[in-house]
Write a protein that binds this DNA or RNA. Structure first.
Lengths: 192, 192
DNA sequence: CCTATGCATTGAACTAGGACAAGAAATGAT
DNA sequence: ATCATTTCTTGTCCTAGTTCAATGCATAGG
């Protein structure tokens, strides 16, 4: 059960077997059926979830009821509302499973214990956030500077497996374009 | 010279006077005239700069020569290309002073020393990145879900002092709209 | 096997915002 | 003070993308 997460976390073998062992005992295994809300607006996010199996989306609904997908997460990704999790503030986001999921969960308490016992993990988590930030920055740039077609092509290049797993209108919402227009972009691309 | 940075970093008094003292000795003071490029595409970013005085922009130029401003930074903000700084990878960004600046600088070496000597700083920097990530997320949402006028109003609400300091076309570039259209939005708002 | 529900496609009419151009206003260097 | 450069404004025309509505297509549940 822990192979993939250990391989991911400990790529550079910075940890002793004992430390990894402790890390694994602290993770909570959880199965969740599809279409489950793991987090709703107003709740405090009490988990960071590593996805062993399944697919999840994180999204925001603005004051006009307009929905924006912030992130898709599949196997070997983490998902959480970091701001809400760390600062124990009510979240503005929704997190929903799109498929049946198998998860490994950290809670604020277990994460705290882990960091106390093995402070080296601070670095690991900082790297995760940093990569997140980079990805978010690139996405912002593309959102601003690219056409709908370019954004779509970029998306399928970056996440080739996701289009087969999630509804097209969700991808449109992620790209910041309407579902209808994405459909038109796709038919245009197919004709070429 | 160190009052503001110390107040910012050590809000919750988590540090001993010695630790703060060490932190301060490690910071390098630097003055930079306006319109200086602190970082160019292709270079490895070797600084994290805390702004004592002045105003800086960070931006990206895409393959069509289209410019997107990622961040404005003024007094008491940090600016850097974190990805490039930490992973020693060539940056894709430009960082330019818009006014004469007074900076306090961390280099990869001094930051490493600081973290070695006072590991508690890991937490501080993680919080900084986290806040950055939150801000970036909010901005992405606004970029996707709001009209030009809403984005502009949001911007001046969030950063009321910046419009007086930077050129309007820079704000347009930050908001992801054309300079001409921002001008039209503003005249429309002024008439109301 | 049938039917309800959600999903994707297509078309027509509309609009927010872009591109271009030209003038006005501000800023700065000499 | 003057000229040059940059910045801001305004108008016209244009287009990428939206909205709405209709239709066909799957899929899941009884």
């Amino acid at each position: 059960m822990f192979e993939s997460i250990n391989a991911n976390i400990c790529k550079k073998n910075e940890f002793t077997p004992d430390e990894i062992e402790y890390f694994n005992t602290i993770l909570q295994y959880k199965e969740v059926p599809k279409k489950t809300l793991l987090l709703q607006e107003g709740e405090i996010c009490n988990f960071e979830a590593y996805i062993l199996k399944g697919c999840i989306r994180k999204y925001y609904i603005n004051e006009n009821g307009f929905e924006v997908i912030i992130q898709f997460a599949i196997e070997d990704w983490w998902i959480s509302d970091i701001a809400s999790f760390h600062e124990k503030k009510p979240s503005k986001l929704f997190i929903e499973t799109l498929e049946d999921c198998q998860l490994l969960i950290l809670t604020p308490e277990t994460k705290e214990m882990l960091l106390q016992k093995v402070p080296k993990f601070e670095r690991i988590f900082r790297l995760l956030i940093q990569r997140n930030l980079s990805a978010m920055q690139n996405r912002l740039i593309d959102t601003i500077a690219k056409s709908a077609q370019e954004k779509y092509l970029e998306f399928i290049k970056l996440y080739p497996t996701i289009p087969q797993r999630v509804a097209q209108h969700h991808i449109a919402s992620y790209l910041g374009i309407s579902a209808e227009f994405l459909s038109k972009v796709r038919t245009k691309l197919a004709k070429q």
